[in-house]
Structure formats: C-alpha cells, structure tokens
Design a protein around this nucleic acid. Sequence first.
DNA 1: CTTCCCAGCGCG
DNA 2: AAAGCGCGCTGGGAAG
Length: 567
Amino acid sequence: MYLVLATGSRQVRDRPGPEPEACIQPAGEDGTPSAPAVVVPPGDLPDAVRRLDAPGTRWVWAGTRRHYLPLLRAGVTVERCHDLLLSRAILAHSAFAPRTPYILGLQDAAEQDGPPAGQPEQPEQSALFEAAPPGPPLEELVQELGRQLEAVALSPLSARLRLLLAAESAGSLVAAEMEYAGVPWHTDVHRQILAEQLGPRPADGQRPRKLEALAARLRGELDSPGVNPDSPQELLRALHRAGIEVGSTRSWELREHNHPAVATVLRYKKLSRLHTANGWAWLDAWVRDGRFRPEYVVGGVVTGRWASRGGGALQIPRQVRGAVRPDPGWKFVVADAAQLEPRVLAALARDPALAAAARGRDLYQGIADAGFGGDRAQAKVAMLGAMYGATTGESGRLLPRLARTYPQAIAVVERAARTGEAGGVVSSYLGRSCPPPSERWVAAQRSTTAQEQRRADAAARSRGRFTRNFVVQATAAEWALCWLAELRRRLRTLAAEGTAAGELVFFLHDEVVLHVRGEHAALACRLVEESAAAATRLMFGQLPLEFAVSVAVVDSYAEAKQDPGRA
DNA sequence: CTTCCCAGCGCG
DNA sequence: AAAGCGCGCTGGGAAG
C-alpha cells in the first residue's frame, strides 16, 4: 500500500480549527486512493507516521530528505518510500519509459528548462526546520504517483524500471539516515595529524609553520624570492626560470623532472591541500559533537552515483581517515565491492570468458592469467582503458588483446561508444539513460570547414568515451544501491527482532561503512556478504559469476584499505 | 566590491 | 606509471 504524504495546510480547505500539519492519502497498488485521507493535526505527524508505517507500506513524498529528516529527528523511521522527484528525474530521461502523456510532458519540460530537471531544488535551510515546509498539494502528489506507476507498468522493461525506482528511493532513505547519524569523527586525532604535518594552528589567513618553511625553501631552490607557490601562474614562471620545462604545475608532470625543487613543490602541494581542504577550518565548519554530517545528494551524478554537498564528503583523503573512529565499544565494518565495474561489465554482456575471470576474488588476476601472462598490472590497465576509452599509451596498446579474449564484453562498451559518438542515448541495465547531446553539439556535427570538423570529431569522441563509461558506471551504481537497500533491510529486520546490530554511516560509490557494537561485528560482516549476493540476484537473476566484497572489522577507517590503488 | 572560471587535487 | 570516466572544493585571477 502507498501512503502519500503532503505537508502544509493548502491541502484541506474550509476546515474549522487549526490548520493541519499534513495529510496522508492511502492508495492501492495502482496509486488510486483506497481510503479517506488522514488529516494530521499540528505536531502529530511523527506519531501518525509511526502508527501507519508497516511492512508492505511505502511512503510517497516529493523529496525524501525534506520529509524524512524531520521524522528522523523525531525518532521515527520508515520501512520503504517512493520519492516522486527522484523517480520523475529518472523517468523523464529513461529510454525504457513508454510515451505516455505524462512522460512526454516531462520531456517537454526538460527541454524548455534547459538543464535537465534532475535534482530538485531544496532550500539550504530545510534541514533546520522542525518539520518539513509545505510542499505540493495532496491531489497533485496522488496524481503524479498514478502517472508514474502507469508509466512503469507500460514500460517494455517494467520489472527493471520498477526495481530502479525502488532502489533509488531506498537509497534516499539511507542517505537521510546517514546524514542524521553522521560519521564518527575524532577531532583530537585529526588535530594531532594536522599538528604533526603542518605545525601548530596558525592565525586565520596565515600559512602553518611547516608550510611556510617549505615555501621559503622552494623560493631558494628556484632562486625566486617573491614566488607564491599557491599561484600556478607564478610558480610555472619560476619553474621555467629555473630550467624546469613543464607545461603545467601538475604533480604528475613535475614528477618527470629531477630538479631538487620538484620534491619541495610536491611536498608543499600535498601539505597545502591538507591545510586548505581538510585543515582546522574544515574541522570548525563540518564536525560537531564528534560527528561529520555532510549532505548526500542522491542521484546527483548523471550516472546515478551520489554526490555530496558540504565538506567534500566523498573525497575524504587517506591522510585524515585515521580520525574516523568508532565510539568506545563499537567497531567499523568497512566493506568494498571488489572490482565492481568490470564485474558489472561481465554481467551486462553475459560474457562467459569474463565471467570465468570474475569467478575468483581477484578479477584482474583472472584476466592476467587468461591472456596477459599473469601480469595483473597489465590486465588492470587494459580493462580500465576499455571502460574509460583510452586510446593512447600502454592501455590503448593492450586493448586488442583484451578484445580477442573477451569479445562480448568489449562489444558492449564499443557499441555504447559508437552510439554516443553518433549522438545517441545509452542506458544502464535497469534503465537510467544518459542525457542527449546538447543542441550545440548536434549542430557542430554538421560543420563544414576542416577546422570545425576536427573539433566536432573530437567532441564526438569525447561523448563516445562518456557513453562508453556510462553503461558501466551507471549499472555499477545500481548494483551498489541494491546492495545498500538489502543491507538496510537486514539491519532493520534484526533491529525489529531486538538486535540493534548497528547503522550505516558512510557510503562511497562501491564501499560502505557500518558503525556496529563490537559484539555484533561478525554478524554485520555476514549481512554485508548476504546483501551483496542478494543484490546480484535481484538485478541479474542467476549469474555464473560473483560480486565479491572485501569486509574488514576495524577501529579506524584508515585501517580499512590495504591496497591504495583503486579497485 | 562580487561573481565566475580555471587549475589543481582529493575520492571512486 | 598510466592521462581514458564521474564528481566537489579551494585559492587565484580575470571579468563585471
């Protein structure tokens, strides 16, 4: 059963007494009302939600964060939801959506508004409200639910699309719950790291002592007394004066040179980054009461990955991960889907050879043993190149070998690239589609002059690399959402049975962190593994391959990753 | 003065 | 090492 939630007073007119806080409309499986709407008096929403929530119910609202955070603060959680805004954003672009009037209307609106109607606007302060501010009227919400459900039902791939919307919505619940919980953060450990690396905290606007010392040393080594190493332009000129012929001040380019100043620049950059991005100012701004609370933007990335707002939550550098520590008596269970994207490609393409390589825990080793003389590094570079569209360098050279061994898998990414280059749209396994090319892009493809044509060709190749990667990254994001949803469900089931094993506190594309009581760590590990297997079945049914996860029980997030290279 | 873009680097 | 995909954030510097 659906429970459509509208907040604010606009829904009920000509009613005596104080304005209601909300209205809740029960609806059946097709979204048509099945009972009179419940009018919720002011201050009663959390209790009403608690009363009505049950296994099998699904809350319908326009924006999970907006509606669910106030409920969480009131101590209420819900089983499931259907986020109308997230679902609308997916349906508006999905190639799996049928051409109903509703869908056509969404597409028109998207064209007129220019930028895709992706992320709903949410007032910055909404999180500060006690209750959710008024949203659209109830009738509109019920109507939209019906139209969305109809569109899904009429889709030629309705089961996949239905799963995608459910997974996206479940993800939005997890995101709100993680924002509410926060990442356990030890300010004292963080400050200790800063002091060791940078010296004592400087006055605002000043360089920390060790950074200033490096700057002074660098000026000497470059024989440029006035240079400001924070200015790429100044630094580049100074490097040239010292005879270091680089085209930019990028670290990877600097590393090619042997000059003694290079090491100093690199150390300066590393420490400067720590100071500006995750230094004392960051701690002041983002960590309160031992918790780092970023805002997660579900569906914030075209591929369906999450984005974040505030504090750079998805870019916490390894340098400071030691400050991420569980509460006393608690543990972190850190789990990571091993080589998720190539496994996804194997599943997408139903490539038996790649599936065989993915049978073991280390897919790259499997590829290496099958075609690269056991050289894992080569196999990894080749595979990443295939998924990103590398054309030059070692990765480009190794590609033909990969294509001979895994023709079906490579055909999937090549086809996606060709479609994108031709201006077409590609879709993930569950039906998230990439944006169409801009009008400018399309117009440029009809260029006449040789120079314009060269540029248009480059733009076409660029779009091809995007669509090539899209099918893999977007499907990987879907798998990760299903994994999260399964994990959340298992944790809730246990909690309902009286075992509060722990909670999700962090999610990073293919990695989750659970904060659990020490005695439940082993149990949580099992849930993580079970959830991964369940997510795989949910998406792909029976598959001759596994999505391996690595699970670690740790006392610090810094301990979690052994291999600093990406999976 | 504010606003915007770029270079650069952090993460996957 | 690689230079191929997706993001957010910062300071510098140019534009308004």
